[in-house]
Amino acid sequence: MDHLNNLPEIPRSASSSKKDSKQCQNNLMVKICGITRETDLKCAESQGSDYIGFINVKRSLRFQTIDQIMGLMAVLNDKKKAVLVLEPENASEAWNKIIKSGIINIQLHSLNLNELNNLKGKINAFNAKGDNSEYGGPYSKLSSKINIIRAIGLSDKINDSKKLEIQLFSKICDGLLFDYQIKGIIGGTGKQIPLDLVIKASKISRSANKDIKVFLAGGMDIGRMKSEGKIISEYFDVIDFNSSLEDSPGIKNKDKIKDLMTIFKEFNWLC
């Protein structure tokens, strides 16, 4: 599994930027994360969000059990939009939740390289099989491959260790998501990563794997897209929004979702 075969295709150039002067169109995608209510899910999907995230991380204020997530999934028309956010202790825990949920896009906020390779082995074996009926549940009805997006934490600098981390995960994952990190904890801070720093991270990632899908998270809001959207669109494929679309944790504001999606539909970032 070399890339996200089931996600919308994005034109690429050989450079670390995805800008193509011959093709000026809006290919920047949206992920709305932290969904906890059916009404918010329906709004996000109807407004055109490319991905919809469900968080199964206990430290999160938007935590949902796998059973709760499966209930929300029943309302989602396009199951391939779903992203399951996990912070498992080991590959076995991750695999069990993946199989139970039936979600094909998996965002991991933990697992070292050894554990991730272990999980990838399970996923590759699953993906290689023509018949997965033995698993039962949602996966017996899906022919789609399972995709891994690894969250990488950034704060104030990229040292040699962080550069190597980005390179190694880029080579074995289908996507990387850059989020703000505080005291070793990735995500959930609502803080934005400095633009020059996260662009540097994106360039490192694409240099290691030109087909990687790069997600930008960390306090993303409409204001930042209005002021920095053009340069962001050159280096990232998907922008992850969460708290900026809420009235309170887990309670999305429909007007904010509509305003966000209107901007993405009408503004040609690459022009």
Rank of each mutant, 00 (worst) to 15 (best):
L154G: 09
N90S: 11
K42G: 01
N5P: 01
V238W: 06
K79D: 04
K252A: 09
V57K: 08
S92M: 08
D221L: 01
E93H: 10
E45I: 08
G121H: 10
Y135R: 08
L176C: 02
S101A: 13
G188Y: 05
N114T: 11
M70F: 02
A74D: 10
I35S: 00
I55L: 07
I10K: 04
G190R: 06
K203D: 04
L76G: 12
L119C: 00
N242Y: 03
E266G: 02
N77L: 12
V238F: 06
I166Q: 01
I103Q: 10
I263A: 01
D240S: 08
E228G: 03
C43L: 01
F169G: 01
S92V: 12
H109R: 02
M73E: 07
L113D: 03
I146T: 07
D196P: 00
S202K: 10
F178A: 09
S13D: 09
N26F: 09
F236K: 04
L72M: 10
S227G: 04
I182T: 10
I193E: 02
T262R: 10
S60H: 02
L4V: 11
I239W: 10
V198Q: 00
L7M: 12
M261R: 03
Q192R: 14
G153M: 12
I52D: 05
S243G: 05
F126H: 11
I232A: 04
M225H: 06
G250C: 13
K19D: 15
N253A: 12
V57F: 10
G34R: 05
Q181G: 00
L76H: 09
L108N: 02
N112W: 01
S60Y: 03
E234P: 04
G229H: 12
V30C: 10
K210C: 04
A128M: 11
S243P: 05
N242V: 01
A91P: 03
N268L: 06
A14K: 12
I263R: 01
C33Y: 03
I123T: 02
F178C: 11
K162P: 00
F267S: 07
L4S: 14
K31T: 01
Y139S: 03
I239H: 06
S15H: 14
T36Q: 06
Y180T: 12
F267N: 13
K31C: 09
W269D: 00
I148A: 00
L195P: 05
I104E: 10
A74L: 09
L72K: 06
G130K: 14
T189G: 00
S46C: 03
D67K: 09
S16W: 09
S133L: 13
L108I: 03
V83G: 08
K97P: 06
Q23T: 15
K171T: 00
K171D: 00
L61A: 15
E266H: 07
S243R: 04
